[in-house]
Design a protein around this nucleic acid. Structure first.
Lengths: 237, 237
DNA sequence: ACCTGAACACCGTTCAAGT
DNA sequence: ACCTGAACACCGTTCAAGT
């Protein structure tokens, strides 16, 4: 949505995405395939050689469209954010808008097994990520929230969202069955309760409560709480 | 401090850590060297072959003490937590105790360039990490905080801490000079302010405020705020 | 029990060459 | 301009062998 930050365009020629990938390679075609590999097989399986093989091309052909592997990863992360387009919804109330945006951000980052690893290893969300920050700050400014407050609230929301992904992501990666919230809660609880009770008396006792803290609505509740603090003017010293 | 979770013991024989690493290898000697490599050269340079070379040994010798590379990474993460020993301080007030614990956790994870990547790729903090959770829950229980509240507060503190590391870690990695808080603030601010102003009017305007949100005391303030919510009984619906 | 050497199936990347 | 082939310097890991 809106003007793209990279010069790349989606291939719109006569043959678009036909199976077997005919026509010349484009940067976007390379990135799209790379994202497919990440989604279907995980980041650690994304390899220049494998990517080339899936595109039916020599490993070196990819270097025409991508500077090196780091550039490939940057591109994939940016494509991920572009496709997720987390601010593309129409909540009217500013609080609902903030919550929905960060809920989508979290889902996006959790869906791709290695998105967080990508963020942590690269040093930013990329241009598309900057676009999200821009949109959030604009919304807060539009509501008349002072600059310092807006920056503070954005930073807290983003921090909490990334933290939540860091907490939950590795768990989800273990087993696709854990996408189901009930199954997830049962497993997390069991993980704690099955620890040696003598060594970890608290952990074994708190299994159910710790599992509950991983629930999606616990995240949503905290995001809303953080967002709400934006109304208060100067209070934190 | 306290009984170790792994059976491993620090080598205390006649020749302890002499240069050139004499005597037979031990799991702990291998892990210690691996941690050195991570600290001095970064995680991505931690390689079984390089590790072997630094230990003056054949690559395969390492497999006597470590199942595979994943096991090596788990071991290093555990060693990291063991050495940091974030609960080994004596704040008396429970609030101060919580804050100090998570401040130390953050510093520990930020200090090692790849600690977060380790956590995100492995699926837990390891046994030593569990020990930290145990200690935090014990402290909260001792204060008479109900189980559900204790789990909730711990989860929030941990989430926020990991998020903070995810936000700041990649920035610090770019340049060692950024360890200095003032230099860091200046650079973060410049990064935002130098963006194309037409595309990112908010980001360029909010540079100073966004940079301020990355300050250590902003983190400390939020941690304290989260910890304080533990006093309130049943309020969140 | 502990270590080594050679080998296998991979990596990312460079360079010279093809069309 | 775009792609290929061969090569280089690496990976993790297996297997048979040494002491």
């Amino acid at each position: 949505m809106g003007p793209q930050l990279t010069g790349a365009k989606r291939a719109l020629g006569p043959r678009d995405r036909a199976p077997g990938e005919p026509g010349p390679l484009s940067r976007d075609a390379v990135l799209a395939r790379a994202l497919d590999i990440i989604n279907l097989q995980g980041v650690e399986r994304l390899t220049l050689r494998r990517l080339a093989a899936e595109l039916g091309v020599s490993p070196m052909a990819i270097y025409r469209h991508v500077a090196n592997k780091a550039d490939l990863l940057d591109g994939v992360l940016d494509l991920l954010m572009r496709e997720a387009d987390v601010t593309a919804h129409d909540e009217e109330d500013w609080l609902d808008w903030l919550c929905e945006t960060f809920l989508r951000m979290r889902v996006t980052l959790l869906a791709q097994s290695g998105a967080l690893a990508l963020i942590v290893s690269r040093a930013s969300l990329g241009p598309q990520g900057l676009g999200v920050i821009e949109a959030v700050l604009a919304r807060l400014a539009q509501r008349g929230i002072p600059r310092f407050e807006a920056a503070r609230v954005f930073h807290h929301l983003m921090t909490y969202t990334l933290g939540s992904v860091a907490m939950l992501g590795p768990i989800l990666q273990q087993d696709p069955a854990l996408a189901d919230p009930d199954e997830r809660a049962r497993r997390i609880r069991a993980n704690f309760e099955l620890l040696p009770g003598r060594q970890f008396p608290q952990l074994t006792r708190h299994g159910a409560e710790l599992a509950a803290a991983f629930r999606d609505d616990a995240f949503a509740g905290e995001i809303r709480r953080i967002a709400k603090t934006a109304r208060i003017g100067e209070e934190n010293r």
